[in-house]
Simulated assay, not measured.
Amino acid sequence: MIGRLTGVLLEKNPPSLLVDVQGVGYEVDVPMSTFYALPAQGEAVALFTHLVVREDAQLLYGFGSRTERLLFRALLKVNGVGAKVALAILSGLSTDEFLSCIASKDVSALVCVPGIGKKTAERLLVELQDKVDALGVGSAVPSGTLPLDNDPSAREQAEEALVALGYKPAEANRLLDKNSETGQSVEQMIRAALRGAAR
C-alpha cells in the first residue's frame, strides 16, 4: 500500500496531478479541497494517499490531510459509494461541512453531489453517523491561494474537471455559466461551480 507521497508537482489538471518522486511519476486524483491548496508546479508537495486496485486498473488518490483520507476510506465502505463518488463528495463539501451534514442528517446537501441520490444520501447518513466523533478532528486542508491562471482554456479545463467529478457536460456548463466570472482561474471557477451546486 502506498500511504504517502513526497515529491515535485509536475502537472496539475484538476482533479488529476502528476507527482515526481525520485524520477518516478505518480498519477494521483485529488478532491478539489486538496487541489485548491496545492503549491505551484515545480514545487515540493506531500500527499497522504490511498491505492485502489481493480481488475483493470490501479488508481491512486491523494489528500492534503489524514482526516480527508480517513473520510474517503469511510465513504468507500458505504454500499453504493465508489471512489469517484467519494471524491465528488469531498470536492463538493469541505470535511467540516460533510461532517456537519452527517451530524445534522442533512440529506439535501448530499443530493447536490453528482452520483448521490436520496437513498444513497440517507444510507450515508445512517452508516456514518456513529463515526462522526472519530472523523471530526479538524478541517481538511489549510486554505491557500493559488496564482491566477490566465490561460484562455481555463473554462474548458474547469468543465473537464467537473465532468471528471461526475457532472454531465450540460450540467457542468450550466454551473459554470451561472457561477463563474471573467478573469477567474480554473480553481476559482471549479470552486464557484461546486458551491453553486451545493446551494
Rank of each mutant, 00 (worst) to 15 (best):
K105S: 15
A83P: 00
A158N: 03
E68P: 07
D133V: 11
V141M: 00
A121I: 01
L148M: 02
S143C: 07
S108W: 06
S91G: 13
T145K: 05
T95L: 14
S143N: 06
V113C: 00
V111G: 11
L124A: 02
A161C: 11
R155Q: 10
A134K: 08
K168G: 11
N150C: 07
S94L: 04
K105V: 12
L90W: 06
K168S: 14
A164E: 01
K168M: 04
G117V: 08
L110H: 03
V111I: 15
T145I: 02
A170I: 10
A103M: 13
E156Y: 05
G136S: 15
S100F: 13
K105N: 15
V137T: 14
G138I: 00
A161H: 07
T95E: 13
V107Q: 13
L110M: 06
A83E: 02
L148T: 10
L146R: 13
A121G: 06
D133Y: 10
G136N: 15
E68Y: 01
P152R: 02
F98G: 13
V141C: 08
S91T: 14
E122L: 11
G82D: 12
L125W: 04
L162I: 06
V132A: 01
V137R: 15
K118W: 09
N173G: 13
L76T: 13
A158E: 03
L87V: 11
D106C: 04
S94I: 03
D151A: 06
K84E: 13
T67K: 03
D149L: 07
A164S: 13
I102K: 04
D130A: 14
G80H: 10
T67G: 03
P142H: 09
C112W: 08
A74F: 10
G82E: 09
A121V: 06
G138R: 02
A161S: 09
L175K: 00
C112H: 15
A83L: 05
A158S: 05
K168W: 07
L93A: 08
Y167A: 04
A164K: 03
G80L: 05
L162V: 02
D130I: 06
L70F: 11
R174W: 09
K131I: 07
T120R: 12
A109P: 10
A86G: 14
A154K: 01
I89D: 12
C112N: 14
P169C: 07
L76A: 07
L75K: 04
A103P: 07
P114D: 09
L76W: 02
Y167K: 00
N150W: 08
K77H: 07
K131S: 10
A103T: 10
T95Y: 02
K84V: 06
R155I: 08
V141D: 00
L162W: 07
V107Y: 04
V111P: 10
P114K: 02
L128V: 05
L90K: 05
T95R: 06
R174D: 13
L87R: 15
V132Q: 01
A172T: 06
S104W: 01
A154F: 00
K77P: 06
S91C: 12
L93D: 04
A109H: 01
P147N: 09
G92K: 01
L146H: 12
Q129S: 14
E68K: 03
